[in-house]
Every structure is written in C-alpha cells, then in structure tokens.
C-alpha cells in the first residue's frame, strides 16, 4: 500500500512541476488584443501655451467624455486626437489645423487606407513628423 502511495505522489509531483517541451521551446504566443492607446494619453495641462491650451482642453474633454466610452477605435498611431495635439506642438497653428483635417480625411479613406503605412503596435504608423513638409523628418517605419 505504501509503495503505491509513494509512486502516485512521485508521479503527481513530477507532473505538476515539470514543463512540457513545447512550452519551453515553442514560439512565444502574444495576445491578439491591440495594446490600448488610452494609457499613452497625457491629460496634463503643464506643457501647453495660450494657443494650444484651448485645443488641449477640447481634446481632454473628447477623451474623457467620448473616446474612453466609445472605445479605442482609431486605426492610427498616434490617434487622430493625439495627432492634433502633437501637431500644434510640432508646427505653427495654421499648418497644425491643416494637418489635422488632412489626417481626418486620411482616416475617412475606406478605399486603400492600410496600404500606405507600416504597422506599429498593431496600428498604422503615422507620426506627426511625417507631415511637416520636411523630407528629412519622414520615417516610413518606426524602427
């Protein structure tokens, strides 16, 4: 009786602690869920000036009251609202307004939107610096 008990305990302890080979050496499986952009949002008003403050307040209001409830749906990285905020930091207000409407048009494109961008964090990589009319700043890939 004792002999069988020892054998069972040995088997159970070995099975519970040992790892199957395919777990150890197989390719890592990553989550299919897209990483959320909500965590990357900066709600602070510390880095704004007189021009960008109203826009930042509108953006924070949009994030807090609409976007967070609607879901993390923008296909681009950074998202359109984040793009608008960053464009005002990157260039003058006139260009930033035009860049924002340009981004909205490109976001609305249902025909061949994904074909012109590389993927970064499972979204279309489209940084602000690609749209400041400066060839030197264009980065087609994030790496």
């Amino acid at each position: 009786m004792l002999k069988y008990l020892v054998i069972v305990i040995l088997m159970c302890s070995g099975l519970s602690l040992a790892q199957p080979e395919h777990t150890v050496w197989s390719e890592r499986q990553y989550s299919p869920l897209r990483p959320t952009l909500i965590k990357e949002r900066n709600y602070s008003l510390s880095d704004v000036n007189l021009v960008t403050a109203p826009l930042k307040i509108v953006a924070i209001g949009y994030w807090f009251f609409i976007s967070d409830h609607d879901g993390d749906n923008c296909p681009f990285h950074p998202s359109c609202s984040q793009f608008a905020v960053e464009s005002f930091k990157e260039t003058n207000p006139l260009f930033a307004l035009m860049m924002t409407s340009d981004r909205l048009i490109r976001d609305t494109n249902i025909f061949d939107r994904a074909g012109h961008y590389t993927y970064y964090k499972r979204r279309l990589f489209d940084p602000v610096t690609n749209h400041v009319l400066d060839t030197e700043k264009i980065r087609l890939t994030p790496w």
């Binding site: 340009d102 048009i105 009319l133």
Partner: peptide
C-alpha cells in the same frame, strides 16, 4: 477640409 487636402497633397508627394 479644402485647405487640409491641399496641404496633404503636397505632403503626399514628399512621402
């Protein structure tokens, strides 16, 4: 949107 697409067109050429 008209000015935006003007700006975007020029930038698209650079891209």
């Amino acid at each position: 949107f008209y000015t935006g697409q003007l700006y975007g067109s020029a930038n698209d050429a650079l891209m």
